[in-house]
Every structure is written in C-alpha cells, then in structure tokens.
C-alpha cells in the first residue's frame, strides 16, 4: 500500500472498528425524537384535532416529553460518538488512508447540506421569477389575476399577499450588513487560527479559535434581535406569505447551522487548549473550519438574494 512507504509513525492497516453500540443508540434516539416532535407539533398547532381521551390525544400530550427524551439520547450519542472518534485519533489508530476517508466524508456531507439549502433557494427564485409575476397576470395567466387576485400587485418583496396579509420588508443595510461583516471577519480569524495550528503557535491558535466562536455568538445574538425586530416592529413573521416564508426558512436554517458551527468551534477551542491537535493530525479542526466556511458562504448568498436584491 502507498502509505507503507511513508514513514510517519502512523499505522498502515486500515482501522475497521470493533463492534459498536453507537449506531443503534442513534437510530432509537432519532426514532424517539421524531415521534415526540410529530406528536408535539400536532398537539400544539390547530391542524389536527384529536378526540379527547383517545390514544392520539394521549400521544399528543406526551409529545414534549418524548421529544425531550429523544433530544437527550441524540445529544448523548453525539458526545459519545465524537469523543470515541477523538480518542481513536489521539491514540494514533487512524492511518493516513482513514484520515482521507474522514475528510472526503466531511466534504460530501457539506455537499448534501448545500443541496438542502438549494431546495429553499430554489423555492425563493421560483417564487420571485415565476409565481409572483404569474399571480400578477403575466404569461397566459391574465385570467388568474383578473378573476382570482385582482388586487394583487406583483412586486418583490411581496408585502401584500394575494390573500391580503401585509408585512414590511427587511432592509439589507442595518444589522444584516453588520452580520455580513462579522461572518467574513470570523472566516478570517479562523484562517489565522488554522495557520497557527500548522505553525505550532498554540497561544494564537487558542485565542483566534475562541475569537471565531465569539463572533458566531455575536452573529446569533444580532440575528435573534433582528427576528424580534421583524416580529414586533415590521409585522414580518414566518406566516406573512411567500416573502416571510422564504426569509425565515432560509435565515432560520442558516442560523441553525451557525449554532451548530459555533458549538463545533467551542468544542474545538477546548480541544485546542487540551493540546489535542498536531500539525499532522487535526482532521476535526479542519472539518470544523470547512463547516464554518460553508456557513459563511451560505450567508453571502442570503445577503445577496434575501436581503439586498
């Protein structure tokens, strides 16, 4: 094999792990999580009316507890799985080849995340370029407009929906612009930290990784404030028609990913302080960095297509 010729002190055999109970814990956890989520959502919104005293109503009332149990199992699993992987990595069980497997796996995972966002961006573009003009009577839809929605004004952002819900649009040049600057800066601080890792400059590494995580927290704080502003001052909610739908779904899923990325960075900061990473062996750090840059790039698309234009 190729890596037999490399003398890095790394094992040459591919590490096929022993039996593991992690996957089955994860599967049970996911099942309980979504079972709870489904029942919780149904019992707390008005779409589904369960008959009182029925099994369906009972499951609905148990929803929050089942959901919490599922979340606890999944959090436990994530802690357990990644600490196992970190231990294996530090015990030098990972050959160069396995390291490549992890890297490639992470890249393809991020690719799948890109496609998840693509679905919502696709909805945004489809709505802006086709649905709204059609509802306004373009193409062969003159009668749709005249008969169904005669009062609808086909502009983007849709501040008045065909059904009559009104809202105000969110401008780009306040908090969103500041948040753009914050995320761009965070990519820069993270790159400094990464270079420091490779140069064995530990104090810079630790400082700048923490700094990046801190910028993530600030971003999330500002985003939360922006949501508050949208709901209270602008009347812009998740339910304010297609503009509010795409606005909150895109920024919301992005915010969720920033949250995950920030937790990732905090864990990496702690692991940096413990001296877990070496210039040769720091897959987890790179994975976190890639993830963070991905979140950053998604934000740039958001800024351009959701806020600016």
């Amino acid at each position: 094999m190729k890596e037999m010729t490399e003398n890095t002190g790394k094992p040459t055999n591919y590490y096929v792990p022993e039996q593991s109970n992690l996957p089955i814990i994860g599967s049970v956890g996911l099942f309980i999580l979504v079972l709870g989520a489904g029942n919780f959502i149904q019992s707390s919104t008005d779409k589904v009316k369960a008959e009182e005293g029925s099994l369906q109503a009972f499951m609905g009332s148990m929803g929050p507890y089942i959901l919490t149990l599922g979340l606890l199992i999944i959090f436990y699993l994530m802690y357990k799985w990644w600490s196992t992987a970190a231990r294996e990595s530090m015990a030098n069980m990972n050959s160069a080849q396995l390291d490549r497997s992890y890297r490639q796996g992470m890249l393809w995972f991020i690719t799948s995340e890109v496609m998840f966002f693509a679905a919502f961006f696709g909805a945004l573009w489809y709505a802006r370029t086709l649905i709204v003009p059609w509802l306004g009577g373009e193409g062969n839809n003159a009668m749709t407009h005249a008969l169904l929605w005669p009062d609808f004004n086909a502009i983007w952002p849709v501040t008045t929906t065909p059904g009559g819900t009104t809202t105000q649009a969110m401008g780009p040049w306040g908090l969103p612009a500041i948040n753009t600057a914050i995320l761009l800066t965070s990519s820069w601080t993270l790159t400094i930290a990464h270079h420091a890792l490779i140069d064995r400059n530990r104090s810079t590494l630790i400082l700048f990784t923490w700094l990046t995580a801190l910028l993530g927290v600030i971003f999330l704080g500002l985003q939360a404030y922006e949501y508050y502003h949208a709901y209270t001052d602008l009347g812009l909610t998740l339910g304010s028609g297609i503009y509010g739908n795409t606005f909150f779904m895109l920024t919301g899923f992005h915010g969720l990913h920033v949250t995950i990325g920030t937790i990732f960075l905090i864990v990496l900061s702690i692991r940096c302080s413990k001296g877990h990473f070496t210039p040769e062996n720091h897959f987890a750090y790179e994975a976190g960095a890639w993830y963070w840059h991905f979140v950053d790039v998604v934000w740039l698309f958001l800024f351009v297509f959701v806020y600016a234009f």
Binding site: I41, V158, T165, M249
Partner: peptide, 23 residues
C-alpha cells in the same frame, strides 16, 4: 416545506400567500 405549510403558517404551496402548488 410541507411540514411548515401544514403547521406553521407558511404558504410555499398556497397561491393565497404567494406560493404555488405547482412549485
């Protein structure tokens, strides 16, 4: 999107909110 249309007031697939079932 189906889930939020069903429960959280979005209208991705409802023309009254500016969406479209064809989407």
């Amino acid at each position: 999107m189906m889930l939020t249309d069903r429960h959280f007031g979005t209208s991705f697939f409802d023309a009254a909110g500016g969406g479209d079932p064809v989407m």
